[in-house]
């Protein structure tokens, strides 16, 4: 580095410095993220078996087999993740608003409490939902004691009617899986929303109502467009990991709630059909990239309007 006063300003630093700073981190990502992605693509086009080895034969048929066999699990994953993302938005938005503008001196305490579960084990917290939703678990015993079992049965038949129930119980149903996903990824939605909503100038709503906007109009036309960056960030941080997740569907679901991650896990680690597993994994990645890009583009143009 050149010595002297001028070196402290940003522009006059020698231009190899940023590359030296970037090199180790980016090298790590290239070798252990980019290269594995290529290796995954290559594996999906190979034929052979674990014992005799694989060779690259550009066998595209694997993709056809993967999709024709496992499209229900893929579709289900996208649907569960989509529903969970919608629910985290519905629950997270009021919470973020409450923490940002209505919590007064409790703001820091509430922020700690929103983040704290995030620092404890994902698996343990998911298992706690077994305790809550289980057949003789907390919820059923509580409702039983309050003589509200009829409400539970009503809710269960409602879930059955919309295709999210399992017939006889709350746990091990699509409802339980979506409930777990929503719970687990809620902080990922709340934090970007909070960062955005906290900076909103509330006088804008006053201005809107001065201009004869109803509260609903003020929200739809003023507040919501301004919070879109937070909404987009939160939905991405929730939807992407939720689609690939299978912890919730294994611990809280049944054979009828199998998600795509479970299939990839089983094909890789138990069935040892590497090409099929790699093809499924690659399909999942491409589907998510396409969805995310079209979503960001759409949200971006809406923001401009």
């Amino acid at each position: 580095m050149p010595d002297g006063v001028a070196a402290a300003t940003v522009r006059k630093r020698p231009n190899w410095v940023p590359y030296a700073l970037l090199a180790p981190g980016l090298l790590w990502l290239v070798v252990f993220f980019v290269l594995p992605t290529l290796s995954l693509a290559s594996q999906s086009l190979q034929t052979g078996d674990v014992y005799n080895g694989y060779s690259l034969t550009w066998h595209v048929q694997t993709y056809v087999d993967a999709l024709s066999t496992y499209w229900p699990q893929l579709l289900r994953s996208l649907m569960y993740a989509g529903l969970a993302t919608l629910l985290t938005l519905l629950l997270g938005y009021p919470l973020a608003w409450f923490v940002a503008h209505r919590s007064g001196r409790w703001k820091n305490v509430l922020l700690v409490l929103v983040i704290a579960p995030f620092y404890t084990s994902f698996l343990i917290r998911t298992l706690a939902w077994q305790t809550i939703l289980g057949d003789q678990g907390l919820l059923t015993s509580l409702l039983d004691r309050l003589h509200l079992t009829w409400a539970l049965h009503g809710f269960e038949s409602f879930l059955g009617a919309v295709g999210l129930g399992s017939g006889s119980q709350l746990l091990y149903s699509p409802f339980a899986v979506i409930c777990g996903l929503t719970y687990n990824f809620l902080p990922f939605m709340v934090l970007p929303l909070y960062a955005n909503i906290e900076r909103l100038d509330l006088r804008l709503t006053e201005a809107a109502s001065d201009l004869y906007a109803s509260p609903v109009q003020a929200f739809r036309r003023v507040i919501w467009p301004l919070s879109l960056p937070g909404v987009v960030g939160g939905t991405l941080l929730t939807f992407i990991p939720a689609t690939g997740d299978y912890i919730n569907s294994v611990l809280l679901g049944s054979a009828k709630t199998t998600m795509i991650g479970q299939v990839i896990d089983a094909q890789f680690l138990r069935v040892l059909d590497y090409p099929l597993a790699a093809a499924l994994s690659f399909i999942l990645m491409v589907v998510i990239i396409v969805l995310v890009m079209s979503y960001v583009r759409r949200a971006g143009t809406e923001e401009l309007l």
């Binding site: 980016l26 990502l29 252990f32 290796s39 995954l40 690939g244 997740d245 790699a278 994994s281 999942l284």
Partner: peptide, 24 residues
């Protein structure tokens, strides 16, 4: 982009692609 991609990729994809690299 390189920094963003690992955060936008589901864990199951990253885990399985690393496995294929280690196997290869």
């Amino acid at each position: 982009l390189l920094i963003f991609m690992p955060m936008a990729t589901p864990e199951v994809v990253m885990g399985s692609s690393l496995l294929t690299l280690f196997i290869a």
